[in-house]
Amino acid sequence: MTKVSMTVNGRAVSGEVEGRTLLSAFLREGLGLTGTHVGCDTSQCGACVVHVDGKAIKSCTVFAMDVAGAEVRTIEGMANADGSLGTIQQAFQDHHGLQCGFCTPGMVMSAAALLAENPKPSEADVRHYLDGNICRCTGYHNIVKAVLAASGQDVSAVAAE
């Protein structure tokens, strides 16, 4: 076991990990941050996406030790300071961008990374960027709509072709 330290959602944390402990496991089991979900074992589904030093990564694909000293942000760190939903979270609720909620944390984290890179993405940009996040409930319609809305774009005409 080795001690690892990092900053998670603005808070300095540390814990004992094995070499093989994944970041997702450290967050969930070590820190009790169970909002980060694990939906597959091949780095495909994206339910475990978190930000490491501002970049979206799949936390099931890096070892906790590899991100020692990094700034990590998880879904638990996405609300506003007063506890209200952040812009992207609120857009997901407003546009019914989630159903069972399991893929949702990863979707929100990926969406946040997209909008940081590309503040006014097109529909195609959103669909392309979310290629690494699988949702089985929504057919993606309302997720794409929510991300476009979170970017400040008018989505009132979506699907009213």
């Binding site: 941050l33 169970t34 979900h37 998880t74 996405m78 609720q93 407003d94 929100v108």
Partner: peptide, 21 residues
């Protein structure tokens, strides 16, 4: 009506079976 369950799912506070300790 907007879904009340969304609040916990969007903030990482849903409690699925594997989330329990």
């Amino acid at each position: 009506s907007k879904r009340r369950e969304d609040i916990r799912f969007l903030t990482g506070r849903g409690v699925y079976t594997d989330d329990m300790n």
